[in-house]
């Protein structure tokens, strides 16, 4: 299997999340950009394609569902992974129904997210 670097975008308005995720995800050689401001993230997304977008669902300005909709409207190849603070059926279902690849509930280990990303990457190759 050929190894290709993934472009990953991480959006969360709490800085601890991006701060700890970035180094963890970069360990496997992928390119990670983190954003606390979802608006800025979406602007960046319009400039540059990302393979995977990881976003928190609850943010003050723009919420995760909006991010999801924006991303899918601009790129049908990008896989969106949602971080939820409270894994309720409704929120998760809404996200999945709107086309999110999967969701992951806080608290989680960087490696848990890594597994989800690998699964998404597998589908990207198909």
């Amino acid at each position: 299997m050929e190894e290709r670097k993934l472009n990953i975008m991480v959006i969360d308005d709490e800085n601890i999340v991006g701060k700890r995720l970035k180094p963890a995800l970069e360990k496997s050689g992928d390119i990670v950009e983190t954003f606390e401001d979802a608006k800025k993230a979406l602007e960046r997304f319009n400039e540059k394609p990302f393979d995977i977008v990881v976003t928190d669902i609850r943010m003050d300005e723009v919420d995760g569902i909006e991010v999801l909709e924006h991303v899918l409207a601009h790129s049908d190849k990008t896989k969106v992974i949602i971080i939820t603070g409270y894994a309720t059926v409704e929120v998760a279902r809404e996200a999945l129904a709107k086309g999110a690849f999967d969701f992951i509930a806080k608290p989680f280990k960087p490696n848990d997210l890594r597994v989800v990303i690998e699964r998404a990457a597998k589908q990207l190759k198909n």
């Binding site: 059926v89 998760a92 279902r93 999945l96 129904a97 709107k98 086309g99 999967d102």
Partner: peptide, 24 residues
């Protein structure tokens, strides 16, 4: 995932929402 999405789903309430779920 399917269990989650079909759980408590009301088919008669909102066809659009229902259709978008089955489509996903």
């Amino acid at each position: 995932r399917i269990r989650l999405m079909l759980k408590d789903l009301d088919t008669t309430k909102d066809r659009d929402r229902f259709s978008s779920i089955t489509e996903s």
